[in-house]
Write a protein that binds this DNA or RNA. Structure first.
Lengths: 170, 170, 170, 170
DNA sequence: TTTT
DNA sequence: TTTT
C-alpha cells in the first residue's frame, strides 16, 4: 500500500527506447548506484538497478541521457512475470520511474559535450503529446521521428519481447 | 549514490529465518504491495517484492510477522547474482530492509491472536546481541534457540543456497 | 530537483477540511511519528509533522481519518511564507501529501467503530469530481455538503488565513 | 513510525558548522529544491528546506559543500521547539540528514575549482573520529581545527542559540 | 497545540 | 510461488 523508491546513479549504457503496439514510448535503462559501504574485501560495490519509464519522460531519457550520465529516479518497485524462451516463468523486479532527473550539469560527464540541462537533445524528435500519435507513423523505413532507434523493429534488437501495453501503468 | 526504498504491504507467507555460517541471522520475506491504480481490465494488481533483513531486526521479523501481517520496510534496492543449478547466472533484485515496522495493531490480522506490537513473540528465542554468539550453538539437533527453523540444515529447505556471509551489508 | 517524503504515523487530532475561494478542498493534519531511538533521558520522542493534502484525497482524509488514526503519507517537503498577525514574516515547512494511506484496519483504533478501509465515511458528503463544483454551493448557511466544517467561515476558526488558491500545487 | 526524506537541490549559502558543548560537530544548510511544476503565473518556484547533519558527515558538508553546490540528502523530517527571544514558543520543522551526497562533479558549479568528489577539502581540518576529541581543543584562539568558524563563539554569530546536546540524534 |  |  506504499511503494516509493528514490535512486541517484549512473547509466550503465545508453537507454533503450521502445514503442508499444498502441504507440506509447517506453525507455529502459540500468542505473549503477554505488553502495555507501565497502564489502569484506574493502571494495566499494554497486547495485545495478533496471528502470523503466513511460510516455513523455521516456522520450526525455532517450534524448538527454546516455551511458555514464548521472540521473535521479523517483518511482516505485515493480514486479512482473513472463514466460522465458525455455518455457519457464521469469520473475522480474525493476523500478518504474515516475520522474527522471538529469543531474549532469552541462557537459560534465559527456565525451562530446552533449546531454545536460540546457543542451539540445541528441537529435530532434517528434514529441509525445499524450495520444497515440505514434501509430500514424510508418513502422519502419522513415527518416525522422524515432528513426535512429526505430528504423528497425523496436522489439527486434533484444531478447525481451515481454513489454506490451499490458505493462502500461495508469 | 542514493538508494532509498520505502514499502508498506502484507507478507505473502511466513518469513524465513536463516543463519549464515558465521552466525548472523537473516530473514527473508515477500511483501505484497497493491498498486494505487487499476489495470486495463479494471483489476487492482499488486507487486510482490522480496525483502531481506539482517541481524537483530531479522529476529524480530521472524518472531512478530507472519503471512498476512502488515509491515513497513525502509531500506535499499539491492542486486546480486549467483550461479543457478542449471549453470547459468541468475540476477536477483530485492530490497535490503534496514528497518522493518510492524503495522499490525494488536491481533487485527492474526487468526490466533498473536503478532502485533505488545504481544509476546511466537516462540521465545535467544536474542541476537551483535556478536557471533550463534557460533557456539550446535549446528543441529538442539532443542532451543533457532531450533524450529534450524534443527534441519538452515539452507536445505529451499533451493536458494545463495546466501552467504559475502552478502552481509556493512 | 528531487523531493520525496514518506511518513507513517498517527493523527494528533481530527483533520481540518477547508475550501479555497475557487472551490478546491484542502485538508490539513499533523502526524505524530515516533522516533526509532531514545533520547538521553531514555524516552522515545516523536516528531509532529504538519501535512496538507488537496482535492479528492483531502476529502478522503476528512472522511476516514480522525485523531489517533494510523496513516501513511507519500509526498514532498514544502516551504511557504506568509505575513504573521504581528507584521513579521512567518516561515512554514510542511509536507504536501500526494497520497494518503489509511493503515487502520477495521475499527482497530477507533473509539466508535468508524474509519478504516471498508467502512462508510463519517458522514456522507458530495464528492470532489475534479472541477470547481464547489462554487455552486452557497458559501455558508447550508446544511449539507461540507456543512459541518463550512457552515462557518472555512478560514475563521484558526489563525491561519494563509491558505489561498496560490498554494495550489499542479 | 516511518519517516524518510530524500532531497536533491542546491545550497542557498555556505553551510554553517557548529560544535556542541560536548564537542560534537553539527552542520546546517538550506537546500533549494525547485518544484517539478509551475505556479499559476507560469513560474518555477522552489522549496527552501533547512537541513541539519551531525558528526562526521557534518564535517564533510562543511569541507566540500558551499553556496550553489548540488547535494543529495537522505534523512528524516524532524520537529523541535524552542523559546524565542520574544518569549514565545517557536516551532521548527527541518530535515535531519543521515547522509549527504555530493553531486557536483569536479568543479562544475564552483567559481574557483574547489569542492566536488576528488578535490581536497577547502581547508584541512582535524577529523571527527567518533569520540569527544573536540573537547581537548582550546575553545577559542587557536589557528587550526575549526578555527575559521570557531575562533569566535560557535553560537554567537546567529540568533539560534537553540542547538544543544539535547538535539543529538541516536 | 500533540498520537498509540 | 503470492497478501487483505
Amino acid at each position: 500500500m506504499m511503494n516509493r523508491v528514490v535512486l541517484v546513479g549512473r547509466l550503465t549504457k545508453d537507454p533503450e527506447l521502445r514503442i508499444t503496439p498502441s504507440g506509447v514510448p517506453v525507455a529502459s535503462f540500468t542505473l549503477a548506484v554505488s553502495r555507501p559501504f565497502s564489502n569484506q574485501q574493502g571494495e566499494r560495490e554497486a547495485d545495478f538497478i533496471n528502470c523503466v519509464v513511460w510516455r513523455k519522460p521516456a522520450e526525455n531519457v532517450a534524448n538527454y541521457l546516455k551511458k555514464g550520465s548521472l540521473a535521479g529516479v523517483d518511482g516505485r518497485v515493480q514486479t512482473r512475470t513472463y514466460d522465458g524462451q525455455d518455457g519457464k516463468r521469469v520473475y522480474v523486479t525493476e523500478v518504474l520511474a515516475e520522474s527522471v532527473q538529469f543531474l549532469e550539469p552541462r557537459s560534465a560527464s559527456g565525451d562530446r559535450g552533449e546531454g545536460g540541462y540546457n543542451n539540445p537533445p541528441r537529435e530532434q524528435k517528434a514529441s509525445y503529446s499524450g495520444g497515440n500519435n505514434y501509430q500514424n507513423q510508418p513502422p519502419r523505413s522513415n527518416n525522422q521521428g524515432y528513426s535512429t532507434d526505430l528504423d528497425k523493429d523496436p522489439f527486434a534488437n533484444s531478447g525481451q519481447i515481454d513489454i506490451s501495453d499490458d505493462d502500461l501503468p495508469f
